[in-house]
Design a protein around this nucleic acid. Sequence first.
DNA 1: GTCTATAACAGGATAGAC
DNA 2: GTCTATCCTGTTATAGAC
Lengths: 218, 218
Amino acid sequence: MTTVETDESFGGVTPDAARRLLLGAVQAFAERGFHATTTRDIAGRAGMSPAALYIHYKTKEELLFHISRVGHERSVAVLTEAAQSTGATRRAGGGAREESTGGSAPRLARAVRAFVRWHAEHHTTARVVQYELAALDAEHYEHIVALRRRSEEILRGVLEDGVATGEFDIADIRGTALAVMSLCIDVARWFSPEGRRTPDEIGALYADLALRMAGHRA
Amino acid sequence: MTTVETDESFGGVTPDAARRLLLGAVQAFAERGFHATTTRDIAGRAGMSPAALYIHYKTKEELLFHISRVGHERSVAVLTEAAQSTGATRRAGGGAREESTGGSAPRLARAVRAFVRWHAEHHTTARVVQYELAALDAEHYEHIVALRRRSEEILRGVLEDGVATGEFDIADIRGTALAVMSLCIDVARWFSPEGRRTPDEIGALYADLALRMAGHRA
DNA sequence: GTCTATAACAGGATAGAC
DNA sequence: GTCTATCCTGTTATAGAC
């Protein structure tokens, strides 16, 4: 949770050189975009010659895929954990669901807050993850799209639960879930550590906005 | 308002060749991004040789700037018009404002609906306008940022008015305005004409969501 | 205004020494 | 595993004929 984001997301990557390359690539891609970034730039940031890059990654695109994959996995994990009921959730007979501890409202609030925090704290990674997908090759792109669908489904599930229990009042669940996702994702585009709000403050504000969007009766 | 967006935004551009280049560039930039687009590609789409491009635009970046400028001007105009009171708005003594015809709630709804519609209907242009700014040179970038601030201020103004009249209940006006902008802008990222909703349906949904975010008492 | 041809150069990826 | 040197392709932008 450093403010000068050195992004611990890739802390566990094995050869030290590979990790440095990943970190350099994330920064370069976030600043300039994938296509405007040269392999010389990436290698330079990692303190290596351009050639050394190819020992660890077959192409520049593979580097992007690695970043995208790990980034998406992290953000899905953050969302999944936060969206869980604190106790267990059991399905009741007719398809409606009973909550044991956390109702849908706190689950939604926790999910949005955590997801937004992740996008703000890791805005460098998140920017690459969210806005450079088009540069992936077809196969890698499909892999990532599958991960993205998971996030959407998780969020939609929380909204569905809340409507079923009467906590939420939503006309268009799918559309609202998409809108809440939009809101969270867009944080990566504009967030700056120099801005007037901390990641957690934005998370708290957005959690409140999401509850309002869900028609939560305060 | 064609579904197969041929984007009338640039209909008035004077030499026919210049307009075709602009249109080709918008499509190419939206599909591949600025840096991944070649001048050959743009010229090809306009039915010209690469060299002909430089008669009409000094550089590829100038083409992007032109698109960005016109696009921003259009979207600001759309937002401004929609956010106006239908009658005149007069300031009352203490800084609070009286509405004559349209209250703040319908103004917010109209503004969001129109802004979202624009981003959906012109999603090709909008994508370039919103996501390729980083490729502009410093001077051009500043020009565009000034236009963007205008949009934010317009939206914030509507929220402030609504809070002053008691129509809205907002703790953090600036943050909420930013969030509503986010929501609208992000439409350009994911909208597809093949999707299940029309631009106007999305606009209507988002207008409702914005009212909820603003704490409008229905 | 548009074309063909080309200058001038940058960038991804590899070869081969160490 | 890393370096230096380099290949080779593709790119922006210009020159000069029509």
